[in-house]
Design a binder for these strands. Structure first.
Length: 1113
RNA sequence: GCUGAAGUGGUGGAAUUGGUAGACACGCUGGACUUAAAAUCCAGUGAGCAGUAAUGCUCGUAUGGGUUCAAGUCCCAUCUUCAGUACCA
């Protein structure tokens, strides 16, 4: 029987589908293993051979794990919302759902052809309402959450509201917008509902805010930075402006530190972790406030908590001493009237614990100002209880009972304090700096042109210039501004800031090298220590004070920190960088000018897209404030629209939907006409971005058809996380960061059991194409030689000439060769030949018309494109050889190879083996179809082992020692390789085994049966077929992996390499039982050794038993 | 600029804790089978030198140093390529 890959592969693919061979169960005694590929987007172009590389690797691993007795979850699905389908819809009017459906069908067919062991019963599609229902519900969950820094996790918004009710927001340790207004509990309660909503938005994990975006009015959409070229849209070349837009954002910044910390416990590639670390961009420094010098508003006399004090409070609350911690553990559980707070300010004093309802203060004794405290607290009507550290540590319960006693006999204080009006604030510029040690080097400040203070502080004299500059900047995209480092531009505002330490006046400039979105959008410029500030100062003739000891700054800024001594800096002078840094922060805090701060580069992620083909938000607007639709009414299904373009008045495409209003009473989406009704509200017009659906899909696979929850608790607890995740490195800072963020959030809310979704991740390398080139001659007339008419006539006579690769070494060779050819063949005469020029151009040829030996099928090439129909070919020995070059696989380079073609010509098993054989999984490597004959031959040889001619011939005899050795050597290597994801080497191992067994003419069942199992993860179709030919009636996919037995590999002798001065000269077969001394003796006595030494006496003999002998001398 | 990865025959790539460099495959050359081609099978194939030959010698893992009995592998410096990232204060 011949090996017929077409019939065999079809047969088994059908078998697997019909028997649901790879359906994973959520209940099993076996240990679980979850293997996942990164979510594919089903593009219209289908797969090329580069795409399935990772899928093949993960499939091999999944199949191997099944053989190893694991319950394997290996699902697949589609990230099916996205731009290409929408773009196609705009062009053709075809609904994206339809296009997507068709693309998925193509994808599925291609995937099935390769024989993957996916559990298709769990397929998910992000564009399916049954799926995005849960994406919407997670969004609602995010909206209803805030980040509590005390517990370091997300909590329900109701907790925050109750805190506001009780104590306002002065002390709450939450992640929020910068500069949230402070209020007391009374103020909170008095706020109108709308105002409360506005405040809460500043804390919610997803929130509406005004964001700077690249807006293209013509396209009616926001563009990403890389979609803009020179201030114009990449598509269409329309103008793009910076615009503020109200959009949904995700407060991923709340998770910056945890996203950083989490990297330590996951087994992901270092480069990937590095780029996430880089992206999060933690930097440690200080916030410093500069006041703007103004002749205005009177000073407030009110004593307010400074930034520094607030920060200290928060800090203190986290860093309790041991005794404090002990006591707090007891006190914190008290509820109601006996509820305690820690580190609370009473008047101007910071107290350890206070129970406000019972006006009782609990403090540790031994404070410096104890007398003043006692007097003040007594005056305010507080009871005071004091304990020593020792008392608490020795018997905390006794202390608690004493406290309880006090509480019983106390009463609440009557508060008649009214919240005071806030004074009109002076303008203040906050900056973040990583170098507070250089603060005495500040000679000016720069604001981003978009900075909100610009318009407020600009002097009338400078107004015109400043406005013009702001307008110019608005036209440039952020990327433009960043790319253009050379042009220094900026304008003086006319205003001055006060240096917080020296009190000197400092010019305030605006400049587009400062980015509005980073830090505070303002910098304190230290020209002597920062190159950009230096360049700016030089350009505008601003003084550059030198604050570094013994450093020359006449040419460039001094950026090095190490070894630098600060000078001319008041109290910082003479200190090293490290010491100055600490002292400067200390002083900033002491004088309430600033405070130490950790800043992250990571920005909150914009979550709104002005697109049609994405998840609709479950949001409607009442009085302009967003309202969540109750989860019970989800999904909010994407409405039908006539056009997929923005509306005429610039609203997103959903603005075209006639039925897109929320009936809050009927709890359903209704026609826009009903918007007149009081209880009907407009729905959100934006849709969610591509990463919404892909940020949690791995959890859905665990329980993909659940309609009650996004996955049941049981299934989540069973599968927990992805054990092996394979995909490209291009997702490093997109999908993989957002997905980690959502997972941590879901974990905080108790919705998933682990806070990292993928234990191990592997980046597969790209498969590159091997392009083929032909060399075409293009003739030009040298200038002014002929009239235009004559020139055209000459050129018209010359056909396209295409020259084989090895006929020339240089451009000159090429020109001479082509000219001679043209003259010889009468296309050109000798005279005119001097007046024309021949230029070589490299033209891509379709790789399918080139064979393994780089020979072009000339006829196929001629028919490929009409311009080559009449081309003349200069051949070498009757053959046209193409040039080769490795490039990215792409349609435009005609080097794309379709896996379907490989499957029908060589088979899926051959494709799988070859993709693995190409090289290490993680590395980029070029594809060359010719190489596939190697694995094809291997499969045929493997097949032949089981046959004698056309007849199946299996011997039941006991295998020989040698045969067993081959088998077990193979088992060992293959097992090691798969565990190490070194799939390329195990293909070689199979080849070696089959070559050796063929040589021995081995057809023993006891060898061939395990061999079939070994290859089955790699080449599952042929393995199944051989397995059934061996008389088995069930699938090979779950039989036990052959057990490795070391005793078959034990050798009695070793062929020792004998080296002289490290160079191997010959080998010597010696028993492994010999001792070092015996080996040395035998080797030295050998005649070949004596010949090598040629009378010299060895100085030293190194013997490593079982390895090598080295003779020195 | 910064960060990371990698440089081994004509090509893709092997090489365990430092221990026989180039496994396995492609390609190429020669041969067998065939009218011929394809397919299949066999042999050779890092470079150079010597020899009719068996064989022997020299050089060889980007470059230059170093450690070691022994270096593709470890250390230092340099060069090149690829990937990511960038007025990040």
């Amino acid at each position: 029987m011949q090996y017929n890959h077409l019939a065999i592969e079809k047969k088994w693919q059908k078998f697997w589908a019909e028997n649901q061979t790879f359906k994973a169960s959520n209940e099993s005694d076996k240990p679980k293993y979850y293997v996942l590929d990164m979510f594919p987007y089903p593009s219209g172009a289908g797969l090329h051979v580069g795409h399935p590389l990772g899928y093949i690797a993960s499939d091999i691993y999944a199949r191997y794990k099944r053989h190893k007795g694991f319950n394997v979850l290996h699902p697949q699905g589609y990230d099916s919302f996205g731009l290409p389908a929408e773009q196609y819809a705009i062009q053709t009017g075809q609904h994206p759902a339809k296009t997507t459906e068709a693309n998925i069908a193509t994808y599925r067919k291609q995937l099935d052809n390769i024989g993957f062991s996916f559990d298709w019963t769990r397929e998910v599609r992000t564009s399916n309402p049954a799926y995005y229902k849960w994406t919407q519900s997670i969004f609602i969950e995010l909206f209803n959450s805030w980040y509590h820094k005390d517990t370091d996790k997300a909590e329900d918004i109701s907790i925050l509201i109750s805190i506001f009710k009780k104590e306002g927001n002065r002390l709450v340790n939450a992640v929020s917008e910068e500069g949230v207004e402070l209020f007391s509990s009374e103020e909170w309660k008095a706020f109108p509902k709308k105002k409360q909503e506005e405040i809460l938005l500043q804390y919610r994990l997803t929130y509406l805010s005004d964001t700077h975006v690249n807006w293209c009015p013509v396209l009616g959409t926001v563009l990403a930075n890389d979609e803009i070229i020179n201030g114009l849209s990449e598509r269409g070349g329309h103008p793009v402006v910076q615009k503020k837009m109200t959009q949904w954002s995700m407060r991923i910044s709340a998770y910056a530190q945890r996203l950083l910390d989490g990297l330590e416990k996951i087994d992901w590639p270092q480069p990937l972790k590095d780029s996430q670390t880089n992206w999060i961009g933690r930097s440690q420094g200080a916030m410093v406030s500069f006041e703007v010098n103004e002749v205005s508003s009177k000073e407030s006399t009110e004593v307010k908590l400074s930034y520094k004090e607030l920060e200290t409070l928060k800090e203190l609350r986290l860093n309790l001493s041991k005794a404090e911690g002990l006591l707090w553990d007891e006190l914190k559980h008290k509820k109601g009237a006996a509820k305690f707070r820690k580190k609370y300010t009473v008047g101007s004093f910071l107290v350890d614990y206070v129970c406000l309802a019972k006006n009782t203060i609990v403090e540790f004794s031994g404070k410096e100002d104890e007398t003043e405290r006692t007097t003040f607290f007594a005056k305010e009507g507080f009871n005071i209880v004091r304990f020593s550290n020792e008392e608490v540590i020795e018997n905390v319960l006794q202390v608690v009972s004493k406290i309880n006693n006090t509480l019983q006999f106390s009463s609440a204080i009557k508060s008649d304090k009214k919240p005071e009006k806030k004074p009109t604030k002076k303008h203040q510029i906050d900056v973040f700096t990583t170098r507070p040690d250089t603060i005495f080097g500040v000679s000016f400040m720069t604001l981003a042109p978009e900075h909100e203070l610009v318009s407020k502080i600009v002097t009338p004299a400078q107004k015109k210039e400043v406005n013009a500059y702001v307008r110019t900047t608005a036209k440039r995209s952020e990327r433009d501004r960043m790319a253009d480092v050379k042009t220094i531009s900026g304008v003086f505002t006319g205003a001055y800031a006060i240096h917080p330490f020296t009190g000197e006046k400092v010019q305030i400039w605006i400049g587009d090298y400062v980015l509005a979105n980073y830090g505070t959008g303002a910098v304190m410029a230290v020209p002597c220590g920062d190159q950009r500030d230096y360049d700016f100062a030089k350009h505008f003739d601003i003084p550059i004070p030198n604050i570094f000891k013994g450093v020359d700054i006449s040419e460039a800024a001094h950026v090095d920190k190490a070894g630098t001594i600060i000078a001319n800096s008041d109290f910082l002078s003479g200190l090293t960088y490290q010491k100055a840094l600490k002292l400067s922060i200390f002083e900033l805090e002491k004088r309430a000018i600033g405070y130490g701060k950790i800043n992250y580069r990571l920005r909150d992620a914009v979550f709104s897209r002005q697109r049609y083909w994405g998840e609709p938000f479950p949001v409607y607007y009442k009085d302009g404030m967003p309202q969540m639709i109750d989860a019970a009414h989800l999904p909010i299904v994407l409405p039908t629209v006539e056009k997929y373009l923005p509306t005429e008045d610039g609203k997103p495409p959903l603005g075209n939907a006639p039925e897109w209003a929320w009936d809050s009473r009927g709890k359903k989406v209704v026609s826009n006409e009903k918007l007149k009704n009081k209880t009907v509200y407009p729905l959100e017009l934006n849709t969610m971005p591509g990463w919404a659906g892909s940020s949690w899909y791995f959890n859905r696979y665990m329980d993909a058809s659940n309609s009650e929850e996004f996955a049941s608790k049981e299934s989540l607890d069973y599968w927990k996380e992805v054990d092996l995740y394979i995909g490209g490195s291009e997702h490093a800072t997109g999908h993989l960061l957002y997905a980690r963020f959502w997972q941590k959030f879901l974990f905080d809310k108790g919705m998933v059991p682990v806070d990292e979704f993928a234990k191990k991740l592997i980046n597969q390398g790209m498969i590159l194409g091997t392009s083929a080139f032909v060399y075409k001659a293009t003739p030009f007339i040298k200038s002014d030689c002929f009239t235009a008419h004559a020139s055209e006539e000459i050129l018209n006579k010359i056909p396209a000439v295409i020259v084989s690769k090895n006929l020339f070494n240089s451009e000159e060779d090429f020109e001479v060769l082509v000219k001679n050819y043209l003259i010889d063949n009468g296309f050109l005469n000798q005279d005119t030949s001097d007046r024309i020029m021949i230029v070589k151009s490299d033209v891509h040829a379709d790789v399918s018309s080139v064979n393994a030996s780089d020979e072009l099928d000339v006829e196929a090439f001629k028919n490929w494109r009409t311009e080559f129909k009449t081309a003349e070919f200069i051949l070498e020995e009757g053959i046209y050889k193409v040039g080769r070059e490795v490039e990215k696989m792409s349609k435009s380079k005609y080097n794309v190879v379709n896996p379907d073609a490989i499957c029908s010509a060589h088979g899926a098993d051959a494709l799988r083996l070859f993709e693995m054989f190409l090289g290490p999984l993680e590395q980029a490597k070029p594809w060359k179809t010719s190489g596939i004959s190697g694995v094809s031959t291997f499969l045929k040889k493997l097949w032949k082992l089981y046959f004698n001619g056309d007849v199946l011939a299996i011997s039941e005899d006991e295998p020989t020692k040698e045969e067993l050795k081959i088998l077990h050597k193979t088992i060992k290597k293959v097992e090691e390789d798969i565990e190490n994801f070194s799939f390329n080497t195990s293909v070689s191992t199979f080849m070696i085994a089959v070559n050796e067994l063929t040589l021995l003419k081995c057809n023993k069942r006891l060898i061939l049966e395990p061999l079939a199992i070994l290859v089955s993860p790699y080449a599952p179709h042929i393995a199944e077929e051989l397995w059934s030919l061996l008389g088995k009636t069930t699938s090979i996919s779950t039989v036990d992996f052959p057990a490795f037995e070391a005793n078959h590999l034990v050798e009695s002798t070793k062929n020792y390499p004998i080296s002289f001065n490290g160079k191997m000269r010959f080998t010597l077969e010696l028993s492994l039982d010999l001792s070092k001394e015996e080996i040395e003796k035998t080797v030295l006595e050998d005649e070949k050794t004596i010949a090598q030494l040629d009378g010299r006496i060895p100085k030293k003999v190194i013997v490593v038993p079982g390895k090598i002998v080295n003779i020195v001398g």
